[in-house]
């Protein structure tokens, strides 16, 4: 996707937190990246390396928490696991599945000093 834009967004969130909370260095950034969010994790790491350099989070460890893809199958009337937006329901094989989880792109927390 647009991992460079996402990395910029993460930097802005981190910098705003640094101003509000008063910390000078970020050791670790934990992100929640859903399996259905369309984010290419390796590309995001690469972009973050470039974007974070020279700022409060330069050299920070980046942990990505992969949240699983989930959908509501209208035919089965229950939540099922899906790995992609176009996946069929693993129970009935139908495609009437509305994604309900795994779309996240969030900064969860920071380890700072």
């Amino acid at each position: 996707m647009h991992e460079m834009s996402l990395a910029e967004g993460i930097l802005q969130i981190v910098e705003a937190a640094a101003r509000e909370q008063g910390f000078a260095r970020v050791r670790e950034i934990r992100l929640e990246i859903g399996a259905l969010s369309g984010v290419e994790v390796e590309a995001l790491r690469f972009a973050l390396d470039a974007v974070l350099a020279g700022g409060v989070a330069a050299g920070a460890r980046v942990e990505m928490i992969d949240t699983p893809g989930q959908g509501w199958c209208m035919a089965c009337g229950q939540t099922v696991a899906i790995a992609a937006l176009y996946d069929a329901c693993p129970r009935c094989g139908g495609y009437q599945v509305q994604p309900t989880g795994g779309m996240e792109m969030r900064v969860r927390d920071l380890l700072v000093e």
Partner: peptide, 11 residues
Amino acid sequence: ARMVQIEQDIL
């Protein structure tokens, strides 16, 4: 070191 909870959407 301390944890700072953020819980913000990247977008």
